[in-house]
Amino acid sequence: MDIKAGFFYLFSAVLLFASFRVITARNPVYAALYLVLAFFQAAAVWLLLKAEFLAISLVLVYVGAVMVLFLFVVMMLDVDVDALRAGFWKHFPIAALVGVVIALEMAAVLIGGFTPPAEPTAGPAAAQAAQAGASAVLQVSNTKELGKLLYTQYLFPLEVAAVLLLVAIVAAIALTLRHRKDSKAIDPSLQVRVKARDRLQIVKMPPVLAAVPAAPEAPAAEGAKA
């Protein structure tokens, strides 16, 4: 076993452990942190497969944006973890059964892609040409080739996706900034134009008179008793 295979098994083992802890951790913050660890291990596996663009995209998009936002939301919301996980172990056997079935189905579908094709017998000249072509393919950067495809052959779908994302951003901002009666937003222009006399108002009030002490009450009960 070479060092590349060793790293693959190491990253895969940590990925499986982190994925299992995502669904078994009682604290949602810990579950999110284990999910971040799983994303990093998946990115490392993609690096071993020479998919650098997918690896850096996974780290930048999911770890750098989505999971940070998820952590902020989880920490801001006071989630009752015990109430959410009250019936977890009750439904765990059927959930595990469904997970095993899905894993077996995916393995049955994808197992054909891992079987190496039969190598045709060829002469030494053909073998040398195939080896030269393989070395030339290995030297090509997949990120560079993906960029060429995006900005040449798939330029129009890329522009359509960019316009859709821009419309979604504008729509989200427009929905957030609507004027509602229960909103407590303050207009910044009014804050800028405010003056000192508008903030502080001096009111003249008459002086407060000292309170007159009350006369002591006669002990009526003691006089009636005497």
Rank of each mutant, 00 (worst) to 15 (best):
T115Q: 06
H179C: 08
E105F: 09
V203P: 00
K148T: 13
T121M: 10
G112S: 06
L177N: 09
I94M: 02
K195F: 10
A171C: 15
V98I: 09
K204E: 15
G133T: 03
F156Q: 07
F156C: 01
A174Q: 12
E119S: 09
E159H: 08
A108M: 06
G112M: 03
A185R: 07
G113A: 07
A130T: 01
A127K: 06
Q191I: 11
P117E: 07
F92I: 03
V167P: 02
F114E: 02
A168D: 14
Q201W: 15
S141D: 14
P120I: 10
R180D: 08
D198Y: 11
Q139I: 02
K184V: 09
E145D: 10
I186T: 07
R197F: 14
L104M: 10
K144I: 13
L177A: 09
A130G: 02
P93D: 00
N142M: 13
Q128I: 01
A132T: 03
Q128E: 05
R193D: 11
I94S: 00
Q201A: 15
G112Q: 04
T143M: 12
M106D: 05
R193L: 10
T115W: 06
I202W: 14
R199A: 15
A129L: 05
A172Q: 13
A132I: 01
V98S: 01
A107T: 07
V192H: 07
E159W: 14
Q153L: 11
L175F: 15
L200T: 14
E145S: 11
D182F: 09
A168R: 12
A129N: 01
K181F: 08
L146K: 03
Q201Y: 15
L155C: 03
A96G: 06
S135C: 04
K144D: 11
A136G: 08
G147R: 11
T121F: 11
I102D: 01
M106F: 10
L166P: 00
P157H: 05
L158F: 14
A130N: 02
M205N: 07
K195V: 13
L165M: 15
R199N: 11
V170M: 15
L177I: 11
R193W: 07
T115N: 05
I186Y: 07
L190S: 05
L164H: 11
A185M: 03
M106G: 05
T115E: 04
G133E: 08
I111W: 07
E145H: 10
R197M: 12
D187E: 04
M106S: 06
A162D: 10
I102P: 00
A95S: 08
L165Y: 13
A136I: 01
L110D: 01
P188F: 04
A185I: 04
G113L: 06
A96Q: 06
A125D: 03
A162F: 14
A129E: 06
M205C: 07
L158A: 12
A118N: 07
E145C: 09
P157I: 04
A132H: 01
L150H: 08
S183K: 05
V170N: 13
A108G: 04
